[in-house]
Design a protein around this nucleic acid. Structure first.
Length: 669
DNA sequence: ATAGGGTTAG
């Protein structure tokens, strides 16, 4: 209970209340404030406007919005301090809009002028709301009172500009700072990182270190994710040393960020060692490790961590569930997924939008698009992500028409599509390969303006290519200015020409791409080599392959060898192809042998063809196409009995899919 | 009295 000296007069009771309120205000003790509030009411002390003002701000300090606002509204005199406190409360409880309204009201009242405490609050409010124009206006106002040189104001401006993606403005403010503090440096590092200027984040960090600024935990937590994204292990290890030296290891966030860095760099063994070293692990630690295993293609280990985590008394949260569900999806493990779904329901986590999305994703990846759709039907259908998940689920299960139907429904229900939406449902048109439909969606994309997004244009190029319309594909390709074309859209157009036998065009586009200083990757080389092999461009293909190895230092994938084998084989250089297979550093797969087999059929080389067929029947016994090729080969050299035997061989392995007409075709050749 | 920080979908 409130302790009061009853003997004293009115003024001194009020003074005692004041000092108690100040104490409660600094310790944020709401229940004691309420008791004192009741006391003040009973003793009729509200005639003291000073006391009610302090009471209002005390409630505001405790983030008790309803009492604070009520008292504040009834104040006869509002001090700058009380305005500031009310605004700060609103920002803290996530009502930046109300904070800004108060700011406008305060300016309109004309009694008080904002001070160095006001600006950080309202700038933060603008940052939370991404109100750039208002933020810039307030930035301008700070000059009037010479608050623009206040470190706190400047640091808030940095954070605001970074928050709304105006990195140039942030840099300008930063450059004007006479003495950037550690917080300024951290804000810049983190801001560049969050705006996807990861290299710049690291540059700021090293400049800061060069200047001898002492980093703190927040610096570590900002620089480590940047190391992770860039897979910069060297710098990551340097940071690790600093963390050890300075004792930051005691900080949970730093430990988790460190773990995340190793995970993102693909060093799972070191990540595990790091975890073993931790005697305290929270849900973020576990989730980082779980998603790390998934990221590195080991979904099984990820799922096994779930019971371990619970054994140690850590309860998964919605983020953990999302990661675990994605593991179930990639393992096509419906039972695990259902267990997690049930668990999420019991924990009241199942109606969180990320969880809903992950559930839909899991069910559709487990080939149960009906269950995914059921989850979707239960969602609020206001957020975009679940729609995207159902659409890509339909695509996964090759239900192109359903995906398109859902997209139309989404527009009707006025749900805003995002970039993912298009990568979720546009591939449906590639499946349909229907030029009329493709043209329809093309029109929509023009009208809605989405066509000018690189990812969208890339898919449309692919759609037209699948429809066989290279002209339209190229037109769409040309929409994107040369400087904006990325590796993906180049790969798509090269593959488009390659697929339709226009090898020269594919090679020429490839050269244009290299000229425009886009570095080709594994995928582009696969496309262009494929194009060469289809068009019989032997020399071009071989020299491209050479440049891939020597100039671009790309480690060849088995697909690249398949193209080269196909290339040599079609050109009749069967022995060269065979020798390459025997000497190549990657294990030849079914496709490699299949390419050789196909070439042997063209050039009627039974000896090598039989060898190739032996391998294909071992590596890919279920593919009837290979048997057809062998039968064709025998038939073409008149070995009818062997051709018949091939058919019997197929029957022996229990495959009756070999269509009868294939042998008949072979006979008729 | 004021500022900066870690794990998530497609």
């Amino acid at each position: 209970m409130v302790q009061m000296n009853k003997g004293k007069n009115f003024m001194s009771i009020a003074t005692q209340c004041e000092s108690l309120l100040r104490k409660y205000s600094s310790s944020n003790s709401l229940s004691q404030t309420k008791q004192l509030h009741a006391f003040i009411l009973t003793y009729g002390l509200f005639s003291s406007s000073r006391l009610s003002s302090i009471l209002a701000t005390t409630y505001a300090q405790c983030n008790h919005a309803s009492y604070a606002s009520y008292l504040f509204d009834n104040l006869t005199q509002r001090t700058l301090y009380s305005w500031n406190t009310m605004m700060r409360m609103n920002v803290q409880i996530g009502r930046p809009h109300d904070a800004l309204n108060l700011f406008v009201e305060m300016l309109a009242s004309g009694h008080v002028m904002p001070d160095n405490f006001t600006y950080p609050i309202v700038i933060k409010a603008c940052a939370d709301l991404s109100f750039v124009r208002m933020g810039v206006g307030i930035h301008g106002q700070t000059f009037k009172g010479c608050f623009d040189l206040d470190t706190f104001v400047q640091n808030c401006l940095l954070a605001m500009y970074m928050n709304v993606g105006e990195k140039e403005a942030a840099q300008l403010v930063f450059d004007l700072m006479k003495e950037p503090t550690l917080v300024s440096w951290n804000t810049m590092i983190n801001g560049y990182f969050r705006n996807n200027f990861t290299e710049e984040a690291l540059r700021v960090y090293s400049r800061m270190m060069d200047l001898g600024v002492e980093p703190d935990c927040a610096t570590m937590v900002s620089v480590l994710p940047a190391c992770g994204v860039l897979k910069n292990v060297e710098l990551g290890r340097e940071v690790h040393v600093i963390v050890r030296e300075k004792g930051f290891w005691a900080n949970m966030s730093v430990r988790n960020a460190m773990l995340d860095m190793y995970v993102k760099c693909g060093l799972m063994k070191e990540a595990q060692l790091l975890v073993n070293e931790m005697d305290e692990k929270d849900v973020v630690t576990w989730t980082t490790l779980i998603s790390g295993h998934i990221l590195n293609g080991d979904a099984k280990s990820a799922l096994m961590l779930c019971p371990m985590m619970q054994c140690e008394g850590v309860k998964p949260n919605s983020v953990s569930i999302v990661s675990l569900l994605s593991a179930c999806g990639s393992l096509v493990s419906l039972n695990h997924g259902k267990c997690l779904h049930a668990w999420a329901i019991r924990q009241w986590l199942d109606s969180e939008v990320h969880v809903e999305t992950a559930l839909i994703d899991m069910y559709t990846k487990c080939n149960h698009d009906n269950l995914g759709y059921k989850v979707f039907m239960k969602t609020s259908k206001k957020r975009t992500a679940p729609w995207n998940a159902v659409m890509s689920g339909f695509i996964h299960n090759r239900l192109a028409r359903e995906a398109i139907k859902l997209f139309k429904k989404m527009l009707v229900e006025d749900v805003k599509p995002d970039n993912t939406t298009f990568s979720s449902f546009l591939p449906a048109y590639s499946f349909l390969a229907d030029l009329q439909q493709a043209t329809n969606i093309h029109c929509y994309l023009i009208k809605s303006g989405f066509l000018y997004r690189l990812e969208v244009a890339s898919v449309l190029v692919d759609i037209y290519s699948k429809c066989g319309s290279l002209g339209y594909a190229h037109q769409v390709f040309n929409i994107i200015p040369l400087k904006d074309k990325d590796i993906i859209i180049w790969s798509v157009i090269i593959a488009a020409y390659g697929k339709h036998g226009h090898g020269e065009m594919a090679v020429s586009l490839f050269n244009q791409m290299v000229q425009s200083r886009v570095t080709p990757n594994q995928v582009t080389f696969t496309s262009v080599l494929h194009a060469c092999s289809h068009a019989g461009l032997v020399d071009e293909g071989l020299s491209l392959f050479k440049s891939m190895l020597e100039q671009h230092k790309i480690i060849p994938h088995v697909d690249h060898y398949t193209c080269i084998i196909d290339l040599l084989g079609r050109a009749g250089r069967l022995n060269d192809a065979y020798n390459l297979i025997r000497t190549m550093p990657v294990t030849p797969n079914h496709a490699v042998w299949g390419a050789l087999l196909g070439a042997c059929v063209i050039h009627e080389n039974v000896e090598l063809g039989e060898e190739a067929a032996r391998w294909t029947s071992e590596l890919e016994p279920e593919n009837t196409g290979n048997y057809v090729l062998l039968a064709k080969l025998y038939a073409s050299v008149g070995r009818w009995r062997d051709a018949e035997n091939v058919r019997d061989m197929v029957n022996e392995v229990g495959l009756r899919k070999l269509p009868a007409h294939s042998l008949i075709d072979a006979r008729n050749m």
